[in-house]
Simulated assay, not measured.
Amino acid sequence: MSPRNLLFLLLALLLTLGGCSSRQKAPEPPPVQLSPATWEQIDREIIDASLATTSSVNDYARRSMRVWKDRVQQFTESDFIPWFTGYWTQQWLTMKVAWYKINSGEGKEPPEKRLAAYLQEQYHQRVLDQVAKEIDPEGIRDRAMELYVQLLGQQLQQLAQRYRAPPEQFNLRLTRIQAINLGPPAALNASLHQLLYSKSLAEQPAYAALVKHMHSAVRAGSQRADVSLSSVAQDASEKLSATLAPRGIASAVASAVGRVAGALISVAATGYGIMSHNQEQPAMIEQLRVILNVALNQEWRELMENRKTGTMAGVYYLSGEVEESLLGARRLPDEPETGSLRIVLPAQ
């Protein structure tokens, strides 16, 4: 090979190596030392991230609760209303009211309350328990809390990268932010760093205590429904009681004490024709549908808006602790506290 060709070969090799080196990724810039003012700005952006995350999770909870509400309405229409307004159910309820009246007295609940308890039990079994197999407000509440922790963690990683904050300093910052404050004991407290990075949520005692407390709230879907069914039971009890005398059922029940339920139902059937029931049933169905729909709408709003027991209660608690912890660290001594949602666990 001539010297000239060798020179060309060397130049080509150098150009190739130079191109390879130019395509290599530039090294990450080292973390910088942040000023106190910058750390204060980071704190403000953590609060903003918490608020934005809460808003995003609220959208998830609202969409999920719409699905829950639709399923409750469907089971109410397909199961509970036909059952309650059916001919044989009305006969059975009439017999129960008669039996309650015979056994009423001092120290016993009024017949309408006993009937309400029975209807509430039936509503749970036929509607709420069936819907809970598919979707449950308590499950939505738990998932909302998990989403808040997950999405906030992603936001904070981006925040640390944007400011090129030293990892050890940023993590130390997060350990000073309270996220769960249910102690004593100290195991029921958790910092934001612990919540995000120490262990899985299922393995953290403080998080488990928070979930347990949320589950001890009024069972989702029952509060307003039970109130509405109490009014239904009151009306039903009065109407059924009014029919006892002309139908002679009270005396029939009194003379049939100890007999099987089927015999009692047959006695009721002899005093009340199915034709009369069919005439009254459409109005009964419409009245019951209106009452239960109003109650369901009220319950849905309660589950969405109640900051202590609703589907967003856990998220509001976590975000309130995080935001209050950061605001409290920056508050001047003479500034009043804004306050955040506090949960006090019962004594163990």
Rank of each mutant, 00 (worst) to 15 (best):
P167A: 10
Q287K: 13
L210C: 03
V260P: 14
G328N: 08
A295T: 07
N306A: 07
K101A: 08
S216L: 04
Q169Y: 07
S319A: 08
Q24G: 12
V257Q: 15
S104T: 09
V211E: 10
P111N: 05
R164F: 07
P336V: 05
I343C: 01
A132G: 03
V290N: 10
D129S: 13
L159V: 06
L244D: 01
R23A: 14
L229N: 04
S228D: 05
V227Q: 12
L156D: 02
S56M: 11
E203T: 06
A186W: 07
L15V: 09
S200E: 15
N293K: 13
E134P: 06
E335F: 00
S50R: 02
W99V: 15
Q41Y: 08
V218A: 12
R63A: 12
R141S: 08
V218F: 12
Q348T: 14
A52T: 08
P282Q: 05
A165Q: 05
Q169S: 12
L147P: 00
S50F: 04
G107M: 00
E77R: 15
I46E: 03
H277W: 05
R247Y: 01
Y60P: 03
S231M: 14
S325D: 00
Q204T: 06
S276D: 13
A52K: 08
P111R: 04
D334Q: 14
L296M: 03
P27A: 11
T89W: 02
R301T: 09
T243A: 14
E299P: 07
S2F: 12
K199G: 07
A236K: 13
A144P: 05
A252F: 07
D129T: 11
R307W: 08
A98T: 00
R289D: 08
I274S: 13
P110A: 07
G139P: 01
F170R: 09
Y272C: 11
M304W: 05
A186G: 12
E305C: 04
E28S: 11
L345T: 01
A209G: 02
L345Q: 00
E302D: 15
M65S: 07
F75Y: 12
W83P: 02
Y317H: 03
K308V: 08
Q155K: 13
Q223C: 10
Q91M: 15
L201I: 04
P137R: 01
R176K: 14
T309C: 11
K69P: 09
N293G: 10
E112D: 06
P346D: 03
I135Y: 00
P29K: 09
I102C: 08
K96A: 10
A236L: 09
G221V: 05
W83H: 04
A186D: 13
Q157L: 15
V322Y: 03
